[in-house]
Amino acid sequence: MKPILKIALVDDEQEYLDGMGKLCNSFGRSAGYPVEAVPFCSAGDFLEAFSGGSFDLVFMDIYMEGMDGVAAALEMRKSDSGCLLVFLTSSTDFMPDAFSCHAFEYVTKPFSEKRIFDVLADAVKVLPQEQKYIELAADRKTVRVFLSDIASAATDAHYIMVTLADGRGLRCRMTMPEFMEKTGGDARFIPINKGIAVNAEFILEFKNGCCVMESGARFPVRVRDSARAEQMASDYHFEKIRSRQRHRRGE
């Protein structure tokens, strides 16, 4: 999966291109997503640069000189049915046509920062979550770590030992509640015992009171939490499959 959230901004008004670019980058900083927002001042310029999989999300103005946004979206859909599409417009007249392009959202101008942030927050929920990262302070420096690279986190005195998928460990001075807060409540991270959380992506099995990881690491699971932890892991994988199916259908 792409580590950067790539967003195309298509609008023939420079004011909106500049404003949307700032909002997308501001959202990325606040939500922990590296964002690359690429502006296009016409549908034609966008389509020349577009290919299947080149963008995760497209903000498309409907009323533009030359080719309008709906026509551009129909062309886009010929090569990419999964890219999330958000229409921007000053009128709702084109709404039926817009949603025939499998639009993810429809935003009326002028829009607020909150409106765009809400749309982006909804979008990242259905995009591959491997893109999200957190910042951790370890060895007297701050490092960015993708959530997809974190296999487990376990309390170690006044520290948290964060173990990455490649076996490396980061010893961070923080509490487990602080670590879980940094993940933003990401469903991948399942608390299995006091001071221990594991990434569902790396769980091999639950066996003999332990959570066995793909690396061979074993973590004890509290008896009273065992059924709940297994259910959380099952629910996570089920929802991930459903999200991918909806994304492929352009729903």
Rank of each mutant, 00 (worst) to 15 (best):
C101I: 00
F46P: 06
D61P: 12
V70M: 02
S79D: 07
A71K: 12
V70T: 12
M64H: 07
K78I: 03
F50M: 10
T89W: 08
V107T: 03
Y106S: 10
M64Q: 08
G82I: 01
A43E: 06
F50D: 05
L47Q: 10
D56K: 03
D93K: 11
A72D: 04
I116S: 01
E113C: 02
A71I: 05
S81I: 13
P110K: 00
V35N: 04
F40I: 07
F55N: 02
V124Y: 01
L74H: 05
A71C: 06
M95E: 09
T89R: 07
F87M: 09
S90R: 08
D93C: 07
R115G: 01
G52V: 12
F99Y: 15
P34K: 12
F117L: 00
M67V: 10
V124T: 02
L57H: 03
P39G: 07
Y63V: 09
F117I: 01
Y106I: 00
S91P: 03
V86G: 05
K114I: 06
I116L: 01
Y33N: 01
A123C: 11
E75C: 12
M67S: 07
A73H: 02
P39F: 03
V107D: 03
I62R: 07
V119L: 00
Y33I: 10
A37Y: 13
G52A: 14
I62C: 13
F94K: 13
D118I: 03
S51H: 02
A98C: 15
A103V: 07
M64C: 07
G44Q: 11
I62W: 15
S91N: 12
F59M: 09
A103D: 09
A49M: 07
D61Y: 00
M64P: 02
S100N: 14
Y106W: 09
